[in-house]
Amino acid sequence: MPIYNPIIRQLDQAEVLRYAGLKSGTPFPAELVDEACMQAQLLVRPAASWAVYPYNNHDDVIIAETAVPITGAGIQKHLYGAQQIAVLAVTIGNDLEQMTADWFSNGKYTLALLLDAAGTVAVEAAADSVEQLLRQQQMQHGWYTTPRFSPGYGGWDVSVQPSILELAVAHQIGMTHTASCMLVPRKSITAVIGISTGPKEGPEPHGCLVCRMENCRIRRVSV
């Protein structure tokens, strides 16, 4: 199964502030964001692992040694028409989380909050890189890919996490889950990408658009 440790050079500071809860355009000391982003760059160890499986889109089942049914209207709709599914797992490791905890207990609340947000931006950026690589690889053979879709969003129950981790062969990058289906390390993402013979009509809604957390504090205003 492919392993890819994507390069993360620049963290989008506006995104870091958004994830930290600051409304766009609000003035905030740049040196704090700079420091959190630099620390994040020092601490992240991005790693990704994925595998591609055939997909029975009639019965919504990922065909693998142990078949994995896809339940939930949102994800089923997202994967409609897909013939293959790429299942991916992405993490930035545990070091950043440890530093966040250290800073919090040392009274550096703001930096801790920003570092946590920078970790989120980093793991999203890592997942973007993987998605882009997969898209390029598939396009080379004439296949189209959907944006990624993660368990826990759009009504796709997180109880599927253990199966998804197994399909993505995530243990090779040190990812596991808790009994309550949370990912370990915490700054990690699993997702699926549908692979089909043609583009769907119109852009596929994803991100905040499919999320049911309507009162989320970082929900994009434009949604």
């Binding site: 930290a20 600051l22 905030f28 009274g107 550096k108 801790a112 909050l113």
Partner: peptide, 17 residues
């Protein structure tokens, strides 16, 4: 009132501490 946000609240908390 949505006029101040979490990172600013944390900064104030540090200042207060």
């Amino acid at each position: 009132q949505g006029k101040c946000f979490l990172p600013q609240v944390m900064l104030s908390a540090e200042t207060m501490r």
